[in-house]
C-alpha cells in the first residue's frame, strides 16, 4: 500500500526540479544573449538604409526592417541588453530596498514604523508615472535617472508586503522559541524571518519584471529613458505604433521579445517559490 504514495510524491518533486532546470537554463540563455548581444547580430543594428525601409520579413532580414531600413532582428538582439539589464537592476534595487525597510518596520515597530509607513503611503497615493516624470525631469533624462525615478515610486509595494509578513511571523511560536534560544534580532531576522517571507516577495518581483520593463519603455517613449538611436524594446514599440497597420512586424518583433522574456522570468519565479519551500520537497 505504501508504494503508490511514494511514487506520486517522487514524481511531483522531480517535476519541480525539472521545471527549475528548464526555466533556469532559459533565463541564463537570455542573459548570455543580452551580454554578448553585440557579437550575435547578423547586421549592424544602427546602419540605416532608406532604400529597404519598412521591408517585410525576408531571408536577408528575418524580422524585416524599420522605417529607417535598420535590421529588426539585430535591433531586437541588441535591445535585449538595455531592456533586460536595466529592468533586472531596477527590480533588484526595489526588492532589496523595499524588503529591508519593510522587515525593519515590522520588527522594530513604534515611531520608526509609523514614519516610514506614512512616507510609503505618500508614495503610493501619488500617480506613479507622474512622479517618475518629475524625478526624471529634475535629474534630467537618461536610463539611469529613469531607473532611479521608478525605484523611488516602486519600493513601497515591497515594504508593505515585507512588513505585513514580518508582523505575522513575529507572533509565531518558533520566533518566540528562537528568542528563548538566545538568538539576537539580526540572527532571527536572517535565519527565521527572511526565509519564511521571501516566497511571496520573490514572486512579486518576478511578476514585476514585466511591469517594470513596460514602465521603463513608457519613460523612454516620453524621452526620459533610453535615448534614440539606442535600441530598447519599449521605445522600439512605442516609436513604431503608428506603423501597426502598414508594417506590423516592426512593432511585433520587440513586443514578442518582451512577452517571451517576461514569461520566462514569471515561470522561473513561480518555480523558485515552489522549490524553496521544504514542504514541497517530498515528505
Amino acid at each position: 500500500m505504501k508504494e503508490p504514495t511514494v511514487r506520486v510524491q517522487k514524481i511531483r518533486r522531480d517535476s519541480v526540479k525539472t521545471r527549475l532546470i528548464v526555466f533556469g537554463i532559459l533565463a541564463v540563455l537570455l542573459l548570455v544573449v543580452s551580454v554578448f548581444s553585440e557579437y550575435l547580430t547578423p547586421c549592424d543594428p544602427y546602419l540605416q538604409d532608406l532604400t529597404i525601409a519598412k521591408a517585410p520579413p525576408s531571408a536577408e532580414h528575418l524580422l524585416g526592417t524599420d522605417r529607417y531600413g535598420r535590421d529588426m532582428l539585430s535591433r531586437v538582439i541588441v535591445g535585449s541588453r538595455t531592456s533586460i539589464f536595466s529592468t533586472l537592476l531596477l527590480v533588484a534595487v526595489i526588492t532589496v530596498l523595499g524588503t529591508a525597510i519593510g522587515v525593519f518596520c515590522g520588527w522594530h515597530g513604534k515611531w520608526v514604523d509609523t514614519v516610514l509607513m506614512r512616507l510609503s503611503d505618500m508614495f503610493l497615493a501619488f500617480p506613479g508615472l507622474v512622479f517618475a516624470l518629475a524625478v526624471a525631469g529634475v535629474l534630467g533624462g537618461g536610463l539611469h535617472n529613469a531607473i532611479i525615478a521608478l525605484a523611488a515610486i516602486s519600493w513601497p509595494k515591497y515594504a508593505r508586503i515585507a512588513r505585513s509578513q514580518t508582523l505575522a511571523q513575529k507572533e509565531t511560536a518558533y520566533i518566540k522559541a528562537a528568542k528563548l534560544a538566545g538568538s539576537g534580532a539580526g540572527k532571527i531576522i536572517c535565519k527565521h524571518i527572511l526565509p519564511n517571507i521571501i516566497g511571496p516577495i520573490l514572486v512579486t518581483s518576478m511578476l514585476d519584471i514585466g511591469t517594470m520593463m513596460m514602465e521603463l519603455a513608457g519613460l523612454s517613449f516620453l524621452g526620459l529613458g533610453a535615448k534614440p538611436p539606442i535600441a530598447e524594446w519599449g521605445s522600439m514599440m512605442s516609436d513604431t505604433r503608428s506603423l501597426m497597420n502598414t508594417a506590423p512586424w516592426i512593432t511585433f518583433a520587440p513586443g514578442v521579445a518582451i512577452f517571451i522574456s517576461v514569461m520566462i522570468f514569471n515561470l522561473l519565479g513561480d518555480t523558485i517559490r515552489d522549490y524553496a519551500d521544504p514542504r514541497n520537497r517530498g515528505r
Binding site: 509565531t172 511560536a173 522559541a177 528563548l180 538566545g182
Partner: peptide, 18 residues
C-alpha cells in the same frame, strides 16, 4: 534564557518550517 526554557502548546508551530 540559559536558566529558563519553555515547551510550547503547538509542537509543529514551535519549530521553524524551513
Amino acid at each position: 534564557y540559559q536558566k529558563m526554557q519553555m515547551v510550547f502548546q503547538t509542537p509543529t508551530d514551535s519549530f521553524d518550517p524551513r
